Each structure stands twice: as C-alpha cells, then as structure tokens.
Amino acid sequence: MPRRTASERHVATTPATADIGAETGSALLDVLTAFHHPTRRWLCELLAVEGPATVGRLASRTGLAVGSVSHHLGTLHRYGFVEPAPDLARDTRESWWRSRPRQVSWDATDFGEGTVARRIASSAEAENFRHHVRAVQRWLAEGETAPAEVRHAAVATDSLVAATVEQMAELSRRLTDLVVEWGEECRADAEVRPDVRRLPVRVSARVFPSGPVKP
C-alpha cells in the first residue's frame, strides 16, 4: 500500500468549523482540553517562537517520540492552533507545521456548578495559571544573566486600587486591546524587517478583585 502524503495525512485533523475563536458550549470545552495540555502548549510555543518545523525536528527538539508529536500536532490542528506548512516541504512525505495565532476566552462560571463542564473549564484556568508561573520562574532564574537592555525593557507591575466593577471591566478591555494591537504590530514589523534581532516576549496580565494578601 503506497504511503500517504503529508497533505493526505492532515485531512483527518482539518478544523471542522469556520468559527475558530468563537466557540461556545461543548465546542469550547474541546478547545480548552486540547490547548491546556502542557506538552501541546509547549509545542505551540516552540512553533511560535522558533518558527515552522517538521515533526522530526520537533521530536528531536523535545525528546518526544515522533508518533507522540504527530498526535499532539493533529489535535492542535483540529482546533486551529497550528496548521500544515506544505510549502516548506522538500517532498510530499515531509510533514511541516507552523503556528497559527488565535485567541481563547472563557469563564468557568458559564458552566453549571458541579458539572463536568465546570470542572474542565476550571482545570483549564488552573493549568493556564501554572503555565504562567513556570514562565515567570524561568525568567527569575535566568533573568540576571540577560543583557542589561533586556532586563530594563522587561517590567513587573502591581497595583491595588479601589474601583467599580465597570472600571475594572474597562481596564480589562483596554489591556486586552492594547496587547492584541501590539502583537499585530510586532508580526507586521517582522514581515517588513525580517533580519532585525527579536526576542520571544511573553505578556501576561490579570485584572481581578483582591483584598490584602496575608504573608
């Protein structure tokens, strides 16, 4: 039996919906389950930061089995986080992948209390927080050896202000809009000036009610 081409192998995981980024209900839960898996999140970020790669290269980079990498990429493809990059392949058997930026937004309380759906949504939020903590811990461990201009460009800010719910919502919206706009500007600039040195920059912000924190 002839071996299927990379394109033929990707058909089974092609996203079934055109509403990527607007999922609700059970479809949203499937997205959360797919993305908030530490290994899949890692693969997503490797493609986003280091650029397109073959399954073999990702397996070598991560120490994972080729079959495991293919499985995870298939899941990420199904929910719109990565996409095949056949234009980079030297022949039809090579399987190249690239990052596909997309947003995911959810509120665990949109799902009934005590339901499996609520547990999935809450678990995704917890894993997302753990992912951010791991990133911050790595920066704290390695940041002192970074060049001075990099350390000075980074920021950690914290503020505790009495505000109305409406004011809190407005801050959340403005922060989100700013980060999205900034990201789009960075990607557009990278296309115009591909030879300029760039760093993978993570932006993580949380806006939430908080009383005094006991040590």
Rank of each mutant, 00 (worst) to 15 (best):
G211F: 01
R130L: 09
V179Q: 06
P52Q: 02
R102K: 00
D177H: 13
T176Q: 12
E94V: 02
S105C: 06
P147R: 02
E170H: 12
A153E: 05
L64E: 09
A148Q: 13
R78Y: 01
W97L: 02
E185H: 11
D189W: 09
R173L: 10
R90L: 13
S123V: 02
D158M: 15
A117Y: 14
L73V: 00
F208N: 00
R202D: 09
A153T: 07
L28M: 08
T33E: 11
L29F: 07
A205C: 07
A117L: 05
G112C: 07
L175Y: 03
D189R: 08
L46C: 05
R138V: 12
R40Y: 03
T75W: 10
G114A: 02
C186Q: 11
A126F: 04
Y79L: 05
A124Y: 00
V179S: 08
G143P: 14
M1K: 11
V31F: 01
W182P: 02
V180R: 02
A65I: 08
A190I: 02
F35E: 10
D91S: 10
E185F: 08
S159E: 08
H37S: 04
Y79A: 05
P194A: 00
T17G: 02
A117S: 14
A22F: 12
L58V: 08
T115F: 14
A53H: 12
G80H: 05
V104E: 07
E125R: 15
R3D: 11
T5K: 01
A34Y: 10
L88N: 00
R119D: 06
E125Q: 13
V150F: 04
G211A: 07
S7K: 14
A205H: 09
A59E: 07
S159V: 10
R3I: 12
K214A: 07
R61K: 04
V155I: 15
R134A: 10
R61T: 07
A124R: 00
T115W: 09
R173H: 15
T33Y: 02
P212F: 11
A12G: 06
S68A: 15
D30R: 14
V203S: 08
W96Y: 03
R3L: 12
R98L: 01
T39D: 15
H132I: 15
Q137K: 13
A148T: 11
I120F: 00
E184F: 09
G67R: 04
G56F: 12
R40E: 01
A205D: 07
D91R: 08
D158V: 08
H37K: 05
R78H: 13
V165A: 11
E185G: 08
G51R: 01
V116P: 12
W42N: 10
V201N: 07
M1D: 13
K214G: 15
V192M: 06
E184R: 15
K214S: 14
D177R: 12
H131L: 07
G211D: 05
S105W: 10
T115Q: 03
E83G: 03
A135I: 10
V155R: 13
V82H: 00
E149W: 06
V49S: 06
P101G: 04
S159C: 12
H71D: 10
A59H: 03
P101I: 01
V179E: 06
R93Q: 11
V133T: 08
Q137C: 12
A126E: 10
A53K: 04
T92C: 06
S122N: 00
P215H: 06
D30K: 15
A6C: 07
L178M: 13
T14P: 03
G51P: 01
